[in-house]
Design a protein around this nucleic acid. Structure first.
Lengths: 253, 253
DNA sequence: CGCCTTGTTGAAAACACTCAACTAGAGTGG
DNA sequence: CCACTCTAGTTGAGTGTTTTCAACAAGGCG
């Protein structure tokens, strides 16, 4: 079946950054010039198969990656072949904007599904931040929202397996909705149960059992690459989910 | 006994931002003008007793908080009176610099010990980011390092209680050392076992048992407000700690 | 077809939590 | 001065959650 990433296809420069612009405009308004500058900033489009490592920790980067299609994960590799996914990205996300400041990343960036990404050279971004102060602030804002999402993931730490997974599903439903990739009753989720485990710190076996519980409780049915949510309100309440941390109100409106 | 926060006392404007400047210069070089601008940016000094809530989630802020003495935590309050500490701050940290972008925070900021903070008005910071582009980038960098620390906390998720606590101790040792508040064999840690539990997602009882294990293994002795680390190398190895994520190399040197 | 990945389930073991009791010390007020 | 209370730390026993190890089913793909 088609993944969420394949629902839309970008045919020209404008549609490539379309979802980034959607994401930005949920937070603040963009001028035509700023929109234009973003469109022109893209240097190259690349497609990667699932499992591919796009960026390796510790390697110096000269561009940042804008996710156009598919899902990317940021992952730590640990002892004994284990891995921990510390962030998950949906189309429209500026995956490693922070590499503009850090140069070398502390984590790998890995394709969770087939992905299409746009590369934006650091030189262009640096110039943009100097000539377009408002746009610079919006890019800074994106990295700061990224940190807010990290905090929410830390907040899941103290919760049970069921709540952790439910909360993750709520977050993804909301983030897919922002860029128009969610349906009213769910969203495409091209992740294995092992992937979910790597995000929540649970074993694949326990993810499986927990998903069954959620299914039996009628809270969420994750199957065949689709997360079906019959009653979002109820799932959010179960997960203690409050979308404030995604900062989705455009304050200029 | 004296806490780490009380070892140094700031007597004038310059010493108040001294540790921030130290922290910044571990990452990049500052011009005299930038140093001066930071010193002048402070509007007010406040002292708070332990347990005090300095900033409440959801409330609009007009200044950012620079921690001068003591420890601050950023906390989520959950159902049933539980709390999760999502970040911990040491002197020199710009605790809520991100509120410059977000206005309303998604978390509370709470004094873990008696703290002295300097308030920096957002208006001043906004002006600084416009007139001093290099300083603006360094402030952006601080928020991005903050996010890197968040990621490392997420990375602890998959580990055992002993490793989680050991990793936290390694991080704090390093961060205290950056601003000159660590001794060679440990650092002052003005936190209860319950606080440690709120940071690692463990119950106070289990923190206690885990600290005993670490003590018996000769890895770390946490007692009377001091974390004694006989062999840092060994503790780091046990915790799988790699300080890269703190980005402590000044690349301009 | 065989091989691989993904999902599923069972049973036992390891881990962390709850409840409960108790110690030690600091601070309070009679 | 002592009794009282409060907080922080400590330990034991029993319970619940999650992991580990193992086996097997279903589907995709060479």
């Amino acid at each position: 079946m088609a993944t969420g990433a394949r629902i839309r296809t970008a045919t020209d420069d404008e549609t490539i950054v379309e979802m980034l612009i959607r994401a930005l405009e949920r937070r603040d308004s963009l001028s035509d010039r700023e929109r234009d500058a973003l469109i022109k900033a893209v240097a190259e489009i690349r497609i990667h198969p699932p499992g591919d490592t796009l960026i390796r920790a510790g390697v110096s980067a000269e561009f940042s990656t804008l996710l156009v299609d598919g899902m990317l994960g940021r992952v730590f590799y640990m002892s004994e072949g284990k891995r921990q996914i510390v962030a998950l990205h949906v189309p429209g996300d500026f995956v490693d904007l922070h590499s503009l400041l850090l140069k070398r990343l502390d984590h790998d960036v890995v394709a969770m599904s087939e992905v299409r990404v746009a590369l934006v050279p650091h030189a262009v971004l640096r110039k943009l931040t100097e000539t377009e102060p408002h746009l610079a602030r919006m890019l800074w804002l994106l990295t700061v929202i990224d940190a807010a999402i990290h905090r929410e993931w830390i907040g899941r730490l103290g919760h049970s397996a069921a709540v952790r997974i439910a909360h993750l599903l709520c977050e993804l439903q909301m983030r897919f909705a922002v860029v128009g990739l969610a349906m009213p009753d769910g969203f495409p989720i091209d992740l294995t149960q092992a992937d979910l485990g790597d995000m929540t710190g649970l074993t694949p076996v326990h993810v499986n059992r927990t998903l069954r519980k959620l299914r039996e409780a009628g809270l969420a049915i994750v199957r065949d690459g689709f997360a079906s949510i019959p009653d979002l309100r109820r799932l959010q309440e179960f997960a203690g989910f409050d979308p404030t941390y995604l900062y989705l109100e455009n304050r200029s409106r």
